[in-house]
């Protein structure tokens, strides 16, 4: 599903963000990516969502080879991925409903389908009563639930989450991880970057540990 083969990324000023990354994530897997700040986690995620590309090596996401993908194909790749960020990235001038509906609108789905599907997602994340609320009136946990609903509303094959619980307290973090677990149980491949080692231990999933642009360690959930 996601395959990195001998991937290097160097930014101007000779900053080596990724060095010889070899990683394979199978369809339906749940994988944690851990490592300190500046380890290369965000660069890796940017490559999966086509916001960056490798200097050398090969990255494949689903049927897309990121070395040969054209600019015009990039939006269509992104429509098959759901992305969640630490800072939620919600449209401030749009309601909860409108935020969640965005991927469906972009895809050109009909109003009836959008209404029903967004309704389902609102129920799924427990925010039906907030459908017409603007993000600034939501708590951090609620905003992240909206972001997760938006990332899953279009049934993506892959969900990547970059520090999704970074701004949340432990209780809310567990709630968010439960939602990601649910998505994984329904067949979505989930790849989560986090600093929270305690949570990683509790979840018993595959863990990829990255440091200084290298994969230092990789181990399955039962070995944690």
């Amino acid at each position: 599903m996601i395959h990195f083969s001998h991937v290097y990324k160097t930014y101007s000023g000779s900053v080596q963000a990724l060095k010889n990354i070899d990683l394979y994530i199978d369809k339906g897997e749940f994988v944690f990516l851990t490592g300190p700040s500046g380890a290369g986690k965000s660069t890796l995620f940017k490559m999966i969502s086509a916001f960056d590309r490798p200097c050398s090596g090969e990255v494949t996401v689903g049927e897309y080879n990121m070395n040969s993908i054209s600019s015009s194909q990039v939006p269509f790749l992104r429509r098959k991925i759901g992305v969640v960020y630490q800072d939620f990235k919600l449209l401030k001038s749009s309601t909860v409903f409108e935020n969640i509906a965005l991927p469906l609108k972009v895809r050109g789905d009909g109003d009836n389908y959008i209404r029903d599907r967004v309704g389902e997602m609102l129920e799924h994340v427990g925010l039906s009563f907030k459908r017409d609320t603007f993000p600034q009136f939501l708590s951090g946990g609620e905003q992240q639930r909206v972001a997760i609903a938006r990332a899953l509303v279009h049934h993506p094959g892959i969900l990547i989450a970059d520090e999704p619980t970074g701004n949340l307290d432990p209780h809310l973090s567990e709630e968010i991880m439960d939602l990601l677990d649910k998505a994984n149980a329904q067949g979505t491949t989930v790849f989560v970057a986090t600093h929270d080692h305690e949570m990683v231990k509790r979840r018993n999933k595959r863990v990829v540990q990255i440091n200084n642009g290298n994969i230092e360690k990789e181990f399955g959930g039962l070995d944690v």
Partner: peptide, 16 residues
Amino acid sequence: REEIEILELVGATSTE
């Protein structure tokens, strides 16, 4: 700017 980034994120095309 942020809105444009979010639109890109959810797969809006350049034209859109």
